[in-house]
Amino acid sequence: MLPDATVLNRILSDAGVTARVEETTLGIVAHVPCEMAVEALSALRGSDLDFHMLLDMLGADTGEGIEITYHLRSLSRDEDVFVKTEVAYDAALRSVWNLFPSALAPERETAELLGIKLDGHPNPKRLLTTDGVAALLRKSVAVRSAEEVRAR
């Protein structure tokens, strides 16, 4: 279930990525800087840990920026790893679709709902909402209040 943190550290540093690997309630999490995220993912994919499946990808508004989490799985070793990176509010997220095609839709969704730009995506359109809808998952966007609903 949990990969070896030291092996993970070695693979990432061999690829020239400055990473901080820790074990949390989530599992093994590797924090990597935003500009090296793609390198880190490609190193993990090619390594003998064999993380060739991107199970999921999500973004979260932390108040300082958008935290992107990639969830990789290795079926041959039955291990999961989470790769986290921070993207500034006005920055662009580099697409990893040519490493993991399964990121195509989640990336579009994350970019649209958290209001960041998408870089290198073959189809960077909105996925879920229409033009003019705010970045709904941002903390600054509030849900409707009870009064608004009542006054519908």
Partner: peptide, 18 residues
């Protein structure tokens, strides 16, 4: 009728009678 359990979400129309 009114937006139901999702009425608070800004992307949801508050009832189809709109």
């Amino acid at each position: 009728n009114t937006g139901g359990p999702f009425r608070e979400y800004p992307n949801v129309v508050l009832g189809v009678d709109k």
